[in-house]
Design a protein around this nucleic acid. Structure first.
Length: 551
RNA sequence: GGCCCGUUGGAGAAGCGGCUUAACUCAUAUCCCUUUCAAGGAUACAUCCAUGGGUUCGAAUCCCGUACGGGUCACCA
């Protein structure tokens, strides 16, 4: 009769380390009371999802505000789905968001004492745990092929019982060790399953930091914990890693709630204390009246790269996500008169339970606030950085004359209520075209939208007068007064009250007059402060545009 | 289908048995300011908290059923 120990040795002859050895290798962290150790543990299976960024950000802030540790672990146990380069992209994007970990996996190499931080490199560690479970009789080899499992599932469907590998359906659960040994020696392929002692008819309660006490049916399915490719499944890797990396709080998507009982049973089989759990709501999207998960395929905003490419300021995106995470955040911002994450304390208790709909309008609002809150040097640096990475057209414009461009960006910013017309950096390109003579020529060629009630000869006469005789400085009031004076000569009312009282007596009011100048200058009826525009473009070019507008 | 989670205006939400005539923010609309636009200021926008019962002197708030939405039942995470 073969014992559990002998069976374990037969399965893993190369494993000589014990759990105690691992405990020594990964001693407890020396952290102050109340410090949380959190992590972000994505799979390198694609781009960084907006929901992942949300999860990541929360884990990051929970660790930071408790003076704990935030680390990054690469969950690459699914070798089939792993995409080369995805891990690097993930981290590059986290860098852009200033949410990089100081401990964990990096493409250039791990940082930290609890690694490796890449699960595919932890196979020897997992084997120690598997062997331990084998020895204490809480795990066993299973020889079912995928066809066998399919057959079991079919039978269960027909008899309308809960599908899964459990109870009488767990075919190889009650094999004798002698049988197991014989089949292993015969070279049959196997996986290792966890022997669950739970009862499906019983309920267990666990505490969730967001949802409170959750009552869930126990999980009596014997889950696979060690795959035939020599790597563990998520369930097992999570338990081993978060134990030896001393994670105190696991924040993850709510899709993990149903498997938490399994994880908890795994922890207790080892005799370990489980971490706290916070199951986060998923960000949703409204689709034809129905809520659904933000989808990689259908929604561009599901990819974090979308925000980066469009040029949403990262602060704006983060502020927006925080406003979804904690409902009191916005009020905090208003009370503090600034839109920033600095100094705000995130709390799980203030999280809503169901998934928020992603709202681009609100993101735009926060992004405008974020941009308006930057000083001009910071703003310019951000725009330049964005242009270099994502927008060659914009970059070319900046490079033509950086100081000119900076002046353009600074229009109506130097004031208590700065202009808020840019929600994202890509908005800058169309909004600033007219400042460049080549672009202005194109706008003009397409036709300047002068008010049709004025005939061309009149407009020309008026604009010539303005070009030659208006004051180009030294301040806005002087300039505007001169414009009014000239306009009056051409029959415009300088006092709107007078115009309203007797519209027939005038060519129009100052709105109409200034509109002629604005259209000639910018090609549009809408623009920011004309005085600032004139100051930036300069007297000569302004005069030229005004005088040739009707050509 | 079983199990789990959820349901307050177009959106994010506050609310934790009487203080609610349901905060606050975005969006939308109107008005004001104004040389246009953006911003800013003001006002409007849920007769009611998915729904049906119940508990209570009193319910958005507690209990039960129903509906709807989401999640989960892999050698994926």
């Amino acid at each position: 009769m073969i014992s559990n120990e002998e069976l374990a040795d037969l399965l893993f002859p190369e494993v000589t380390e014990t759990l105690e050895d691992l405990e020594k290798r990964f001693p407890p962290r020396n952290l102050p009371e109340g410090a949380e150790v959190t992590r972000f543990a994505p799979s390198p299976t694609g781009f960084l999802h907006t929901g992942s960024l949300f999860t990541e950000m929360i884990a990051y802030y929970v660790a930071k505000q408790s003076h704990g540790v935030f680390f990054f672990r690469l969950e690459d146990t699914d070798t089939k789905r792993t995409i080369p380069g995805a891990a690097k992209d993930l981290i590059d994007q986290l860098r852009e968001f200033n949410l990089v970990h100081e401990e964990g996996y990096f493409p250039e190499g791990d940082v930290g004492a609890y690694g490796p931080y890449q699960q595919s490199k932890r196979a020897d560690i997992y084997k120690v745990g598997i062997k331990h479970l084998l020895k204490i009789g809480r795990a066993y080899p299973d020889f079912c092929s995928s066809e066998d499992l399919e057959k079991i599932r079919k039978a269960q469907e027909e008899s309308k019982v809960v599908p899964g590998y459990y109870g009488i359906y767990a075919r190889d659960r009650n094999l004798t060790n002698d049988e197991r040994a014989a089949r292993i020696k015969a070279g049959e392929p196997w996986v290792i399953r966890f022997k669950s002692l739970s009862d499906h008819d019983r309920k267990m309660v666990f505490h969730d930091e967001i949802r409170g006490d959750l009552e869930i049916q126990e999980n009596d399915i014997d889950v696979v914990i060690y795959k035939s490719d020599g790597l563990p499944t998520y369930h097992f890797a999570h338990v081993m890693d978060d134990h030896f990396m001393h994670t105190t709080l696991v924040s993850r998507g709510e899709e993990w709630i149903p498997s938490t009982p399994t994880h908890l049973e795994l922890f207790s089989a080892f005799g370990w204390k489980a971490p706290k759990y916070a199951h986060l709501p998923v960000i949703m999207k409204l689709d034809h009246g129905n809520k659904r998960k933000l989808s990689k395929r259908k929604d561009p905003e599901a990819a974090v790269s979308f925000f980066l490419k469009e040029g949403y300021p990262v602060e704006g995106v983060k502020i927006y996500l925080m406003s979804i995470a904690n409902s009191n955040f916005e009020e905090w911002c208003i009370a503090n008169k600034k839109y920033t994450l600095d100094g705000f304390t995130f709390s799980f208790g203030k999280m809503s339970l169901d998934g928020a709909l992603f709202d681009l309008d609100k993101l735009s609002y926060f992004s405008k606030e974020a941009i308006a809150g930057m000083d001009i040097d910071h703003f310019f640096a951000e725009v330049e950085d964005y242009a270099k990475k994502y927008n060659p057209e914009l970059l070319a414009r900046i490079d033509e004359d950086p100081s000119y461009f900076k002046k353009i960006l600074n229009i109506e910013r130097d004031r208590p209520n700065p202009r808020k017309d840019y929600a994202k950096f890509s908005d800058i390109v169309p909004a600033t075209r007219f400042f460049f003579d080549d672009e202005y020529a194109k706008i003009k060629a397409a036709g300047l939208p002068f008010d049709e009630k004025f005939d061309k000869a009149f407009i020309k006469e008026y604009l010539d007068d303005i070009a030659l005789n208006m004051a180009y400085g030294p301040d806005e009031a002087t300039w505007w007064n001169s414009v009014k004076e000239i306009s009056a000569k051409h029959g415009f009312a300088t006092v709107n009250r007078e115009y309203k009282a007797n519209p027939e007596a005038f060519k129009g009011n100052m709105a109409a007059a200034s509109s002629l100048i604005r259209v000639a200058l910018t090609g549009s009826k809408d623009s920011p402060s004309m005085y600032e525009i004139i100051s930036i473009i300069g007297k000569d070019r302004v005069a030229k545009r005004l005088q040739s507008a009707l050509d």
